[in-house]
Amino acid sequence: MSHVKPAPCCSIAPPDILARLAAEGTPEQRAAAIRALGPSSAFRAQRALIGRLGRELNLGAAQLGGLALATGRKLTAYDNQRQGRYFLPGVKVRGTDDPPAADEAANQAFDGSGTTYDFYRTVLGRNSVDDAGMELVSSVHYGVGYDNAFWNGVQMVYGDGSGTIFRTGALTKAIDVIGHELTHGVTQYTAGLVYSKQPGALNESFSDVFGSLVKQYSLNQTADEADWLIGEGTLVPELGGALRSMSNPGTAYPGDSQPAHMKDYKDLPDDNDPKNDSGGVHINSGIPNRAFYLAALALGGHAWDVAGKIWYKALTQHLKPDTQFAEAAQMTVDVAQDISAKARKAVKAAWKEVGVL
């Protein structure tokens, strides 16, 4: 049975953005941001409990969440019917062999999970997030106008967006958002990166890397064809074009504070204040994000063919819960060495350019 690592406290909406809007936004933005921030403590407690039970009792996802294990691709979509966390997963609207549901969001979440499964299976040889055929469960229409999407330790949960922060219906449409959040599940079952400071920023960065690769894979894009944006078009236009830019961190939206180099690293406290983002996990992830982008661009072709496989092997076989940036960088260099001198040179140069090595 798979050994479950600590479930990350993760969601696609950076809490520092929500905290800023809650303090400085329009009345509508303040209300939407407070609604999005409100459930965080409850889900944080749930994820912590799932992680602790998994570690102490060596339980897998099936026992913890009542979810089925399968020998192949198994997907299920549920309608939460805007009733919140006590109604999760909700009412089943589509299963693996079912025709499309009447609900567009349910179909988008279902298909996006399927594309992510296919990417991991076809490209990386991984059988679902736990590598043991875990059923990928999605619940849509969570809460009322909820501006977030997240992996809760056993399943995916999507809000509809309020139309004030996130565009209504945008979160289930964004394949990179789906790939990002499901990758938190992969990290949970492998490296178990602690969701704080540098390990937490690596946790977020690996999710951005594979979220972007899922999108590129679905579009058959090469590294130089990709936009390297995370959540492009999910925010309402007045807030910005995307949640993050991997190629140019700090440029995704007005007020984006992501650094692109270690000289600008933000040493923030992990003090439960949302504006500090668990020690800057969504903020400082810009540094390893750009390192991956530079390595992928230098290696050329499809980013998942070489760079993606290097990062995947590092994540699943080498990283530990408390791994720091410099350690992760060296691990990817070591993995690249096993592929070719060219790969090692490209990866090492990328980390040097962002000031980590």
Rank of each mutant, 00 (worst) to 15 (best):
R85A: 15
Y120T: 03
V154A: 09
A223L: 08
R35M: 08
A48T: 14
N80W: 05
V194W: 10
Y265G: 09
V177C: 10
F166L: 11
S247F: 05
S138E: 00
R52S: 12
A341D: 15
D305K: 13
L193P: 06
R47F: 03
P321Y: 01
K92F: 07
Y312A: 14
G240R: 06
A106Q: 10
D267Y: 14
N248R: 15
Q317F: 11
D208N: 15
Q330F: 06
N203P: 01
D97N: 15
A191G: 12
R344Q: 15
L21Y: 01
D130E: 11
S340L: 07
G300F: 06
N272D: 14
Y253N: 09
L294I: 09
T316F: 02
A45D: 09
S245V: 01
S278P: 02
G133H: 14
G51W: 04
L229Y: 06
N220P: 01
R44K: 14
A22P: 03
T251G: 00
A22M: 02
A174H: 03
G161Q: 12
A343D: 13
G51E: 03
L182Y: 14
P249G: 08
P27K: 09
P288K: 13
A45S: 09
F87A: 15
V93N: 05
G300Y: 11
G84C: 06
D208I: 04
F210M: 06
Y293N: 00
G65I: 08
D256L: 07
H180L: 04
P269S: 02
K74Q: 15
N203E: 14
R20S: 13
L357S: 13
D273M: 02
D338I: 08
Q198F: 01
I50V: 13
P288T: 11
V129H: 07
G84Y: 05
D264M: 05
T168P: 10
W351H: 14
S138H: 04
S138W: 03
V186K: 02
T122Q: 15
A307M: 08
N272H: 13
G211N: 01
N148V: 03
A23T: 13
E204P: 00
A31S: 14
N276L: 01
A336P: 10
A32L: 05
Q63C: 10
L67K: 12
K92Y: 01
A109W: 05
A336L: 05
A329T: 03
D16Q: 14
L67E: 13
P15S: 15
H180P: 06
Q198T: 00
S205H: 01
C10K: 12
Y312H: 12
T316E: 03
W228D: 00
N220L: 07
E204V: 02
G286W: 00
S340M: 08
Q63S: 15
S40R: 11
W228I: 02
A174L: 03
K266G: 00
E232F: 07
L37G: 10
Y120N: 07
S245M: 07
G300A: 10
I339P: 09
L294T: 08
A22D: 09
M156E: 08
V177W: 03
D264T: 04
Y120D: 04
T26H: 09
V356C: 08
K5I: 08
L59G: 05
L18D: 00
F292M: 14
G159D: 06
K215D: 12
G133F: 12
Y293L: 00
G355N: 08
Y265V: 11
K345G: 03
Y253I: 06
Y189T: 05
G233E: 00
K266D: 08
